[in-house]
Design a protein around this nucleic acid. Sequence first.
DNA 1: CTTCGATGCGCG
DNA 2: AAAGCGCGCATCGAAG
Length: 658
Amino acid sequence: MPWNVSLPPPEWYPHGDRRIEAIVREVLDLDEVATDTETTGLNIVADFPLYWSLAWGERRVCMPATTIPYFRESFADPTKRWIFANAKYDTHMFANVGIDTAGELMCTQVMHSLLYEEESHELKYMEKQLLGWQTRSFKDLFAPKKGETIGERLQRAEREGELDKLIEYATCDAYCTGKIKGILKHQLENEPTFSLYPEQFPNLWHLFFKVEMPFTKVLWKCERQGVKVDCEYLKKIQGPIEEEIKKLERKLNRLAGRLINPQSNPQLREYFYGDLKIKPRTYTKGGKKGVREPSIDGKMLEWVAEQPDNPDAKAAAEVLLRLRDLMKTNGTYIVGMQKRLDQHQRIHTRFNQDVARTGRLSSANPNMQNVKTVEEDEWQVRGAFIADEGKDLIVGDYEQLEMRLLACAAAEPAMIDIFLSNRDIHMGNAALIFGPSYEKKHGWRMSYEDIVEAKSIDKKVKAGKLPDSEMTELVRLCLVARLRAKTIGFGLNYGMKENKLARSLDCTKQEAKDLIDLYLKTLPAVQQFYDSAIEECKATGYSFTLLGRRRFHPEIFSSRLTERWGAERKAVNNNIQGTAADVVKLAMIRCDRERLDLRFGTHMELQVHDELMFENPKETTREAIAVIQDIMEHPLPTNLAVPLTVSIGSGPSWINAK
DNA sequence: CTTCGATGCGCG
DNA sequence: AAAGCGCGCATCGAAG
């Protein structure tokens, strides 16, 4: 703390102190109180608080965590507002000593992220940025000995006469959190939004107060609930996977004639580009130092695996591709997942509300948002996420959420029409875009129905229900058309240019450019939407979502083309991705408000961007599904130009709940 | 000894 | 010369 800052003196009340009774009464009368915990660690279900601090007015108070239950009445008050630097985490800690927080959770990290999305949202950073105070970090003040846990370090602090230091540190955090909240509230109130709903969200404070703040609690419940894991299943597949890994490692070493660590890219580079004399075709991005190395990624290995004239390289590439797949599955999911289970074999991911610049969630410890899909995963890891006994999993998926929102934002009549008539957007787009040109080229105008038919033939041929001869040239043309429309559609939302499109469609740059031109000429409102998003960004410096969440793009005027293009891409994408995030967020808040838990025994477990997962007692699954679907399909204050549709189903595991 | 950048790869 | 958005994790290996 700098010399010129005067904080109120810290107050310490040991367990059993008579004066605590007065504190309890005082806190009970407060509308808002800032709180911070000092805990045994960072695990949201296993760790617990050792000390806690409260701050209000010019008071800052520290007590042992054993006093938390004395404040039960305050915690039970649904109207009280608790201010935290990291609300979800601290309330987990309270829950871990048996105290649920009924009040509202105000999180300064989340508040900060709405204003300064590119900056750190840590308390220490905000203290410096907003208060101008440089406080010392926990690790600095309480450096742990080797192998010592945070909890052990804290207990040693008290034993070794460092209690004053601890009290000063702990109360300072709570006090600063309260002050920072005041500053951030003021700043949020002074930032108008460009929301579609200006009455509900005139400025960022409303966005925080009406959406993000209740959302924090929804996420807390998801994290708390966790997902049941079928441990037996994981163990069952672990054996064969590890066997195969060993076998493949031996094979790789045999091929190389020496020991190679398949997880060391430098070693692999030496082997493939040195020993095996593969000619580099692509290079890595090059980090800070800008050193671009020959790539050793999946694309490159797949290419090598198709070179018959270099049989050793071919074999090694095939082995390595397989090894990478197996090692990731085993390390991250089979072994990694089991380490994270609680005593009820449930996994508790953490949903981060303030990481993604677009307002999306991120998931960590473990990341439940990048588990392989059923189609891609021979080990069916998703099958290991199950419903508890007597329960179902319910999974609801938005269908083409981002494309629907694009159609609405752009007010593109052709796309809106496709959605209103409940057709597949990529098939519809393909027919619109390529139909006329195919007529010129092939004398046959490809229709929407042709593509539907082609897709169905393709499916049946792949399933062996129809002979290969059914895959006529026209069928192939239809499939290519759909794939192209899909790739371009998604690609443009990400700001893809002809260069990259040519590579992903395997065509020339000129062809790719013509395809993009044709696409945007056919859907002119989409082109206009992209243009106006960039214009808006140039006029304001920001891009905005439907509810008014914003993102700053200072590079929009950069003289460096790559930088400017980057800002343009992000501005366009933030409109779409961020609005989709808004929609799902509102749906989750409504699911919570509708008290599905009380009505059906429903508990929300996961969000995977456009997908929600619930655990539900079997007896009420049917009713719950109907209500959830209705909520998810009508998340906004008003209806949009196209309906948001949700496919929803239930089952015993993540695989068969769709 | 820990930390951090780089790489590769999974999801929407 | 290159130019696709948004994330997290495991791992290696260099740097502090």
